[in-house]
Design a binder for these strands. Structure first.
Lengths: 222, 222
DNA sequence: ATATGACCAATTATAACAATACGGTCATTT
DNA sequence: AAATGACCGTATTGTTATAATTGGTCATAT
């Protein structure tokens, strides 16, 4: 990160947004938490909304980095169940990412209404295309409808985050156990008969991810 | 149903609650819709809350009847994936049941805050016990943790209902396809090696369901 | 007996207004 | 140049009084 001040502001915002939500965290609060003056904020960001936008981008970037990292280290990371497992693991490490996926009004507040750009872009279509590519690379059984499979993956991703609001926490098993069980289920159902080609799957993932990463870093050289 | 008037009131309430929600549907509205006077309502129910309570009980009963019916007709209905599939099918046939599982404040309104009795009883523990019984009856693989499996079933049940609030409807596949795919996944992952004993599973289900049904009918002889 | 709707207390919605807090700016300081 | 915080117009929130609606009752009618 080039600019330590900018980084401080983002870190302060992350902390406050998660604790009090976007609406209840004032620019003055953020300035105080970051150890600078209110006016100083506006030397680095043109609005409070833009702070949130940058924060979302950063968190998404870091989540993806974690994901790729997990995948490359996992022998089965190139197969569908391995990728999905590691994506879920990367997601649940960030409360902020979870609040995005939930579209949590408590955290994101009025930013949800205003800024639809970042948050509304539909991740499901990306997932569908991805599954098709994985089928071609012999990482997923070919006789399954990518649209339906992607949707079930969307469902599990959503509910792993939201179910805490619907069940007593005492009845929720450890999140790692749940993720492992989901991966097991997907492996049994969707891995090709011959086990699949994990190395090829990793290639598919990197071929999509690396250009996106490069584009992001060029736009945000921090 | 013994009393046609009572039935009319419940039917009128169901219609209005689903359309306008519990809070926005007044007792006068219900009376009008049912074709009787407001005072008449109180000859059959002691409060507006009690109408909702009876309605919930009725809807749950009917959902269970549909479920058992589907299961008995399905050759694989006695296996875990068959039972779950048919339970999901029975659920999505009733908007009311879906609003209960969502704890939809738009529909249930202030009834959610007041009456916790009916809605808060945790269905997850029932599911765990059920899976254990199914394992003993050779309908589910024995090397899986019932707590985790039950939780994943809770997750899928929840998200099949709630995901419409999070995705464009254009990107949601037909609900029947989704349910079939979930069943396929569960069959691959959790059916015993030998295919399992569907008839035994049906016995397990009826052994639990029939006494519960009898108790309900005795309490509500309508 | 059964059913009605005018009536009641209690809750909730509406309106008008005052007070506050907010995001953002900019003259001044460092 | 870089950073500050007093300042500004607006939007939100709090307050109060008043009006309307609601769930539930019960004297009366059928």
């Amino acid at each position: 990160m080039h600019d330590i001040k900018k980084s401080n502001i983002l870190e302060a915002s992350r902390k406050l947004f998660l604790r009090y939500g976007f609406d209840k965290s004032t620019v003055a609060d953020i300035a105080k938490q970051a150890g600078i003056s209110k006016g100083g904020i506006y030397l680095y960001f043109k609005s409070k909304d833009q702070i949130m936008e940058q924060l979302l981008l950063q968190e998404m970037y870091e989540q993806n980095e974690r994901w790729i990292d997990f995948v490359l280290k996992d022998p089965e990371g190139g197969l569908l169940h391995g990728m999905y497992k590691n994506q879920l693991k990367a997601i649940v490490e960030s409360e902020f990412i979870m609040s995005i996926l939930k579209r949590d009004t408590e955290i994101l507040g009025s930013y949800l209404q205003k800024q639809d750009g970042l948050l509304s872009h539909d991740v499901s279509n990306i997932r569908i295309e991805f599954i098709k590519k994985m089928q071609n690379a012999n990482c997923v059984k070919k006789d399954v409808d990518p649209k339906v499979l992607a949707h079930i993956m969307d469902m599990l991703e959503l509910s792993i985050i939201t179910i805490a609001d619907h069940k007593d926490i005492g009845n929720i098993p450890p999140i790692d156990d749940v993720i492992e069980q989901i991966a097991y289920m997907m492996q049994k159902a969707y891995a090709p008969e011959d086990g699949g080609d994990s190395a090829a799957g990793k290639e598919v993932l990197l071929a999509i991810y690396n250009p996106a990463k490069k584009a992001y870093l060029e736009e945000n050289d921090d």
